[in-house]
Design a protein around this nucleic acid. Structure first.
Lengths: 329, 329
DNA sequence: CACGATGCCGGAAACGGTTGCGGTATCGTG
DNA sequence: CACGATACCGCAACCGTTTCCGGCATCGTG
């Protein structure tokens, strides 16, 4: 069916080794024969088999990406960046979506590991011990999660969170409600700690609700609880929940931005179309993805140097829009 | 490094052929030795090399998916479905995002073709001749695009479009504005034809504007043109544009749903958080993805039967929310 | 006992490339 | 002219599986 190296060799009246070298190792072969081989190969429509090449090289030139939910704008933006950067470097991306099922993460990671040269695990929910095991057995970079002894790139939310709390306090809010994300989520833990510290520092009361799934529907449910609690300022685990809250509050006739202030986290494109526009903590999702790829490829090239794996940290900032305002009592 | 079949064979004092059979073709081997092999293989942590297996089987058990923009909710929803269905069938998904660059589509498709058993091309912008060439050289299913002689699954928008126009007319609108999507987009062509037919049938005037990129920013620009033209009813190429229009109109103090009616296409999750909630034509994106996978796998199994490739068509319906209302003059 | 059938297993050839090593011209130099 | 260096190319092994084919026991049957 497909034309093989041997076919080209036959047509050139050369050995497969020479043809192979002519096409991939141009130095080692006569310039004349090389151009002849190249021409004939082109004419015959030869394309090398990646599989065969992988078998001998031991590399597949592809990386695996595991995300909790590709439909979540944060992860789709990140995925886009991962794909773009990987392609720039000559790698392709195998995608796995766990649909927020923590138990599937390990399985997916292990499956991908056999097909890819390395793995990027985005916001994994699995516990540290198992993640460490994955990291030991395969080249791995964690995004949005730190794991001892493994490479990772995370987002430091404390600064943005502090800005957010300070801003709310300056608007007159003394009691702030945090809507928790998935309980197994590392970043939820980070955000909780950050908001807690920020509340202490700014002398505000913190009310925690949740956990809620990072989805609009869950946010709508959360809105009812929020209103029941009589909160005037809300910071949600992410934009999806925040948007759900806003949508539900609007449904109930509550004026967001006046009667109640809502802050999201992500700065997804949606936050610019919601009404009112959503005040949110900007998360550099694209940068996260691109950096994760860079880290992974570095790791692949530097073939198992047992030096301490790198841990990178990206910054956040608060983006103020219309969903927050002066406290009215 | 990794434990190979030969290592297991040595440990079992058997030949690789027997071990191979014991693990994959359980009938052909003594039950006793089989269980022994299985045990030893497990103890040694043996995992078969997918690459080596692919080399002989000729299959990679993965499919390639090419999308114009994974950050677009329509495609991320579709991708999610593709991934889920593929995984159910034992396949993994290699993702390529062209970032709406039509010229890259062919290249991506050809690259993926070498790594995957088959391809799904979602909403390709490339011209038919080149797509047909792709389809001839590799197992391909087109999603959201019909190509002569190739398998495809598309969404028939005429019904939904007709509902939409009829609905707008019943609200008193006599002139309807259509915001075109990418000019190379097949589905944009479909939608234009559908709305045109619907307008003729319902005796409404049609005003076409565009083209606009399917992004919120482009929709915001579109809003200014819309307002300049004095239109009272707008149907946008997709939800992203519609949301951009709404956001910009809100910015300018125009009350969407009262002064002007806006209809999107997609029914993405965003349409439920926008304010007002976006009336939109529901597109079965997940179903589209899942069906494309089914078609592709059928095609792979039925190994080149030269029967006419299947063309499937999914239905749409109008979802009425708050962004549309009676015409006020 | 002899013989064919049957059940298990091993040898070896694929699959399609890459690469170390050795062989053969060709050339320059003493 | 002889010899060593050099540039090119071919042979064959190898990557890790699968699978065809044939061999050897074992068993049942005539």
């Amino acid at each position: 069916m497909a034309v093989r190296l041997a076919d080209v060799a036959a047509a050139c009246k050369l050995s497969t080794s020479t043809v192979s070298r002519a096409l991939s190792d141009p130095e080692k072969v006569n310039a004349l024969t090389r151009s002849r081989v190249e021409r004939i190969a082109r004419e015959m429509g030869y394309v090398p088999s990646r599989v065969a090449r992988s078998l001998v090289s031991g590399r597949t030139d592809s990386i695996g990406l595991v995300v909790p939910d590709i439909a979540n704008p944060f992860f789709s933006a990140m995925t886009k960046a991962v794909q773009a950067r990987a392609r720039d470097k000559g790698y392709s991306v195998i995608l796995a979506d766990t649909d927020e099922r923590a138990v599937d993460e390990l399985d997916r990671a292990r499956t991908l590991d056999k097909q890819a040269d390395g793995l990027i695990l985005a916001s994994p929910r699995t516990d540290a011990a198992q993640l460490r095991e994955i990291a030991e057995n395969s080249q791995t970079v964690f995004a949005n999660r730190e794991v001892d002894g493994a490479a990772s790139v995370v987002i430091d939310e404390s600064e943005g969170m502090n800005e957010a709390v300070q801003y709310l306090v300056s608007l007159g809010h003394r009691s702030i409600c945090y809507l928790s994300g998935p309980s197994r989520s590392w970043s939820n833990l980070q955000r909780r700690e950050a908001i807690n510290a920020a509340c202490v520092a700014n002398e505000a009361e913190l009310i925690e609700l949740g956990p809620f799934e990072p989805q609009i529907q869950a946010g709508m449910r959360a809105a009812d609880v929020v209103q029941f609690k009589g909160a005037t300022a809300v910071i949600a685990y992410d934009d999806m929940i925040a948007l759900g809250v806003m949508a539900r509050l609007a449904e109930r006739g509550v004026q967001v931005g006046r009667e109640i202030s809502v802050i999201g986290i992500d700065d997804s494109p949606l936050s610019e179309v919601a009404y009112p526009l959503l005040t949110t903590i900007h998360l550099p999702g694209a940068e996260l993805g691109a950096t994760a790829v860079d880290l992974l490829l570095e790791q692949l090239d530097s073939a198992a140097t047992d030096s301490e794996p790198p841990r990178l940290c990206l910054e956040t900032r608060l983006v103020i829009r219309g969903s927050t305002g002066l406290r009215v009592s």
